[in-house]
């Protein structure tokens, strides 16, 4: 793997990978291109990537002015952040207890976590909706965040990670005078950054892109998350103005793309870690 020469096998491998990357990138590239086209340009019979007239500015201006993009982005950031913080705050102590403490319910909890991994949000959506409706919490950040505060996936991921931490480290911490909370704060968390990063990536990607749940509990634009906002934009404002729609989509996907490019290495690390251990 260390050779830098272009052997035939390497060239072939790169060719296949490049082709795959192109296939996956094509829609995104096409989206960028469409965001730069005028309405008439989009509906020509010929397919071209390069816009005939540069319409980027107009399309972005339209996207930005017609819906409140700042609200959408703010909602997205707030909801993802709240979900992530709650998930980590709940999952880390829980996983620590299951991995390193001896108590009777540990086995039963493990079974529950496994069961939780099997139940999709779609199965519980309706009862949750009814419950939020009864307490009058629809159209609120609570409704957007609360169902996701306990992530069994997070518990499972941290559990695997903590199990591989040496028991002696925790024993030493106890002898040094730390309480269990102290151990979590001073020993577990500082050594669990790879797992926390990996989990954060999964969580943020999933909830930033989530359309299903916001669509159920939010009907007020003030609480719309980015994908939901796009939906409103399409239905109410843009009509068939695809240029502006694509510009809006570009704005909304940009934070994740930027985050990915910045943290590419971590991202890959995170995925391989969970792939190996999860």
């Amino acid at each position: 793997m260390t050779s830098n020469g272009f052997t035939p096998a390497r060239v072939a491998r790169l060719a296949v990978l490049s082709f795959g990357a192109l296939v996956f990138l094509a829609p995104y590239i096409f989206m960028i291109s469409t965001a730069g086209k005028a309405q008439s340009d989009i509906f020509t019979s010929s397919l071209s990537l390069i816009p005939q007239q540069w319409f980027f500015f107009e399309n972005f201006a339209k996207a930005w002015s017609r819906v409140s993009m700042t609200t959408l982005l703010f909602n997205g950031v707030l909801v993802c952040l709240l979900i992530l913080v709650f998930q980590v705050v709940v999952a880390i102590p829980c996983a620590y207890a299951m991995a390193k403490l001896k108590f009777r319910a540990a086995r039963a909890m493990m079974v529950l976590v496994m069961l939780g991994l099997l139940v999709p949000i779609h199965a519980t959506a309706l009862p949750l909706y009814v419950a939020f409706d009864r307490v009058g919490a629809l159209n609120s950040y609570v409704a957007l965040v609360a169902p996701f505060t306990i992530s069994v996936f997070g518990i499972f991921l941290f559990l695997q990670f903590f199990r591989s931490m040496p028991d002696d480290l925790i024993h030493a911490a106890r002898l040094d005078g730390m309480s269990e909370i102290g151990i979590i704060a001073r020993v577990i968390v500082p050594n669990a950054w790879p797992a926390i990063t990996a989990f954060a990536i999964f969580s943020v990607v999933a909830h930033w892109n989530d359309l299903y749940w916001p669509l159920i509990v939010v009907s007020n634009q003030a609480y719309a998350t980015p994908p939901l906002g796009l939906l409103y934009f399409r239905a109410a404002e843009a009509g068939d103005d695809y240029g502006a729609l694509m510009a809006a989509t570009l704005i909304i996907t940009f934070p994740l793309v930027a985050a990915f490019l910045l943290a590419q290495k971590r991202f890959v690390e995170g995925i391989t870690m969970t792939g190996l251990k999860g």
Binding site: D168, A172, R174, L175, M178, R186
Partner: peptide, 20 residues
């Protein structure tokens, strides 16, 4: 007594130093 309350110190085979 709990471990933290006993004034007992221990050196582990793996040393168990805090890596961070």
């Amino acid at each position: 007594l709990q471990a933290a309350a006993r004034n007992v110190a221990m050196v582990f085979q793996s040393y168990a130093l805090y890596p961070h």
